[in-house]
């Protein structure tokens, strides 16, 4: 069944991203390490939301987008005042 293939793809993708994280910890890229790890974390979140948690439909995506918007406000206003 194609659903199983979807989940397996997500699982292998997450393991590959984990390997990338571990690999990046062994090389010193300066400030780029943090940026790379945040990008990998974002990619993992997208994989999990779409493949494991079936984030489909307009309303659920709107709810997640709203949460993201408030997080941007939380982080933005805190860090901008420093």
């Amino acid at each position: 069944m194609s659903e199983l293939r979807k989940l397996s793809f997500g699982y292998l993708g997450l393991l590959a991203l984990l390997a990338l994280t571990v690999g990046s910890s062994l090389v010193d890229l300066g400030g780029l390490n943090v940026a790379l790890n945040l990008a990998i974390a974002a990619a993992k979140a997208v994989l999990i939301a779409l493949l494991f948690m079936h984030l489909t439909g307009t309303l659920p995506r709107l709810a997640v987008g709203a949460a993201g918007l408030w997080l941007v406000i939380l982080f933005g206003l805190t860090l901008i005042g420093r």
């Binding site: 659920p60 709810a63 982080f75 420093r82």
Partner: peptide, 27 residues
Amino acid sequence: RADNLAMWVFIGSEAMLFGAIFLIFLV
């Protein structure tokens, strides 16, 4: 569909809590 939406709203509220904790960690 209503169940599904409510679950995502719940996860969004969790993201608010953990977002604040991650922000403290970042600072």
